[in-house]
Design a protein around this nucleic acid. Sequence first.
DNA 1: TGACAAACATACCACCTGGTATGTATAACA
DNA 2: TGTTATACATACCAGGTGGTATGTTTGTCA
Lengths: 204, 204
Amino acid sequence: MPSTAKNTEQELDTRQVILEAAYEEIHVRGFQAASLSKILSSTNVTKGALYHYFPTKLALGYAVVDEILADHIQQQWVQPLLQADDPITTFKNIIMQLGGEITEEDLQCGCPLNNLAQEMAPIDEGFRSRVEAVYRAWRKGIEKALVKGQESGFVNKNVNVTSVATMIVASLEGCMGLAKNSQSKKVLFQCGQSVMDYLESLRP
Amino acid sequence: MPSTAKNTEQELDTRQVILEAAYEEIHVRGFQAASLSKILSSTNVTKGALYHYFPTKLALGYAVVDEILADHIQQQWVQPLLQADDPITTFKNIIMQLGGEITEEDLQCGCPLNNLAQEMAPIDEGFRSRVEAVYRAWRKGIEKALVKGQESGFVNKNVNVTSVATMIVASLEGCMGLAKNSQSKKVLFQCGQSVMDYLESLRP
DNA sequence: TGACAAACATACCACCTGGTATGTATAACA
DNA sequence: TGTTATACATACCAGGTGGTATGTTTGTCA
């Protein structure tokens, strides 16, 4: 493990370079259609290097879920929610922020987690369980934030936090999915507004 | 075009046989990973026959959307909604009926329309626009039913029927997507219940 | 300095894919 | 009856895929 004097300037870990290139290819084409050759040619990494770090294409895909996607969800949703006091306001802020930042390309490609779930769940248990773990963490994070919000009076104590957390994730993914297909931010915002209205209805 | 004396007993149109086999393969594997050879071997149709009816794999995929998926949405959602008086009750009935009928296999494979949307929208405009047409018809059907419900006093006149219709489709697809990945009817029902609660909140 | 393993690089391969070229049986029609 | 178009059937092919076998460089440590 060098990473000492050599990687000073901007030389990233080769493994990380592969991982991120794979993430992007999979985001656009899906896992099955993702081409190792294209991943390699988009970087200047050779096949030997790739198979040095990942024994198989499947292992590479798993690593993308475990390391990249799990991290995204944690940083974009779970951590901000758990740090804040009022989960509903925080949630709306995150939605508006992410909605404002989204590029046309990201809109077209949709949520990478949902993409993998829909593509791989029926045909590979390894993918399914890994994606499920990320979803679980997401939902649990929301649930915790809601409970905390209930305790401090920001959330109605009647709401079933578990099913509400599930519903929130489901409608977010559904919105992203519809907007992705219609390729319009208008649909995304319209749909996001409905989710925020739903969130607002959870107040005491 | 024979279809006269020959197809009396149970001989289906060859074209239709291909289409339905293709629909199932695509439902499980996705379009890109769907194998023509497997479609053929699952029936007793030869490659010559397939390419007689469909000039390319893409054309076959398009036909599945245009003919099979559009029909499903129309029959399962739009027609019942437009025929009924109270759209909210009708909607809940459809959800419960479809939820009750769903097999483990269908749960695993998810909504074929959503699958194709997520997989193909970023990489093929022909698919995207065709899927979009089906979504549009779905949403317009719901919208019409909601307007009719507003006129006859079953639906709150304050609701924005357009964005509510979009939100309903989004949350339905989102629920199906989550349940598909978790492979549990429990999640499906829990999530479906939240959608029904949301529908109920649209009453006057 | 020598030995050894990690970190790549190159060349190659079997397999499967969508697609095509060509042949044939059958029905319709002149 | 001869002609022609439809509806298949069979055999084949180029291209791309994931994967592997083997070589080479480079850093580490005794």
